Structures are given as structure tokens and as C-alpha cells.
Simulated assay, not measured.
Amino acid sequence: MTDVTAEGGHGAVPTGAGVPVEPRPALSRRDWPLYEVFVRGKRGLNHVHVGSLHAPDDEMAVHAARDVYTRRNEGVSIWVVKSADITASSPDEKDPMFAPSGDKVYRHPTFYEIPEGVPHM
């Protein structure tokens, strides 16, 4: 039987001879990744960005987000995303990014004529 330990709070970890155990480098709090936190409220349909926090891993980020951003039971779902994994457009790119849709008039309801036989539209 292999000896086990629950050192570090990560559950049973084998410690017997012949069991390879790779040490994980310890990160200081300064090196923890930054996470963006999104919470869906009880009555809301969408997750809303509520803030950011640092955490050592994804699971701890969810727990920390719950503790920090839903203290009064205002949420039903939490998303955490590493800030480094988010790609976003810049507000400076607003015109080149969104202007092309303005010249596609078929996307606007006023482009289409409503037939006379349609009672409600």
C-alpha cells in the first residue's frame, strides 16, 4: 500500500517509494495571474464584468470571486477569465472596426418594404 498525504490541501498525494512526485514551483502573490470576474445576477440573463482579482489558479479564482463579489447572494453564476487570455479591440479602432456595417443598408429594417397584406409588423 502506498502512503499518502494531504499536504497543501490538495487531497491525497502518493508519497511512497517509486512514485514520481514533481515539485511545483511556488508562486508568490505578486506572480499570481490577474483574472477578470463576470457575475450573472438572479434576474439577469447576461454575465456582467464586476472586477478583477489575482489568484494562484482557476479554482481559487472562482472561490475568491465568490467571496469578494457575491457577498450578499446577488449572483447565480460566476465566470473567471485570465486577463492574459482576453483579446479585445481598442476604442481607438472604433471607426475602422464598426463603420463598415453602416454602408450595408440591407441590415436596417427601413430597407425593406412591408407588403400591404401584412396586418402587424
Results as ranks from 00 to 15, higher is better:
98 F>V: 05
94 K>N: 13
54 H>K: 14
81 V>A: 10
88 A>N: 03
7 E>K: 00
22 E>D: 08
59 E>I: 04
50 V>M: 10
113 E>C: 02
113 E>I: 10
43 R>E: 15
83 S>N: 08
56 P>I: 06
119 P>M: 03
13 V>A: 01
100 P>M: 04
50 V>S: 04
96 P>Q: 08
120 H>I: 04
31 D>H: 11
82 K>M: 08
52 S>C: 11
120 H>M: 03
5 T>Y: 01
121 M>Q: 04
63 H>P: 00
50 V>C: 06
63 H>R: 15
58 D>R: 14
66 R>Y: 03
28 S>Q: 07
47 H>C: 05
63 H>K: 15
87 T>S: 05
59 E>G: 01
60 M>I: 06
66 R>V: 00
17 A>I: 04
29 R>P: 02
22 E>Q: 07
115 P>H: 13
76 V>G: 12
66 R>K: 12
97 M>E: 14
49 H>A: 14
49 H>R: 11
10 H>G: 04
104 K>Q: 14
44 G>I: 00
17 A>F: 00
47 H>L: 13
2 T>L: 02
119 P>N: 04
115 P>I: 06
15 T>P: 01
4 V>K: 12
120 H>N: 07
105 V>D: 08
54 H>Y: 06
73 N>E: 14
17 A>E: 14
20 P>A: 08
65 A>Y: 03
60 M>C: 10
57 D>E: 15
119 P>V: 15
96 P>H: 14
31 D>Q: 15
28 S>H: 12
6 A>P: 02
65 A>S: 10
12 A>P: 06
10 H>A: 10
47 H>Y: 12
49 H>S: 13
48 V>L: 06
26 A>Q: 15
88 A>C: 01
21 V>L: 06
44 G>T: 07
82 K>C: 03
107 R>W: 02
106 Y>T: 02
103 D>I: 12
97 M>S: 11
32 W>F: 15
19 V>Y: 13
51 G>Y: 03
29 R>V: 10
110 T>A: 12
37 V>G: 01
83 S>Q: 14
13 V>F: 01
10 H>I: 09
33 P>W: 06
71 R>V: 11
118 V>E: 15
8 G>M: 05
103 D>M: 00
46 N>C: 04
74 E>A: 05
65 A>R: 04
6 A>M: 06
62 V>W: 02
40 R>Y: 09
39 V>F: 03
70 T>H: 05
48 V>K: 09
113 E>Y: 01
100 P>W: 03
114 I>S: 07
98 F>D: 11
14 P>S: 04
3 D>W: 01
7 E>S: 02
46 N>S: 09
113 E>D: 12
109 P>Y: 12
5 T>N: 04
55 A>E: 02
2 T>E: 10
76 V>R: 15
112 Y>A: 02
25 P>K: 15
44 G>R: 14
85 D>Q: 05
99 A>I: 08
17 A>T: 13
10 H>S: 09
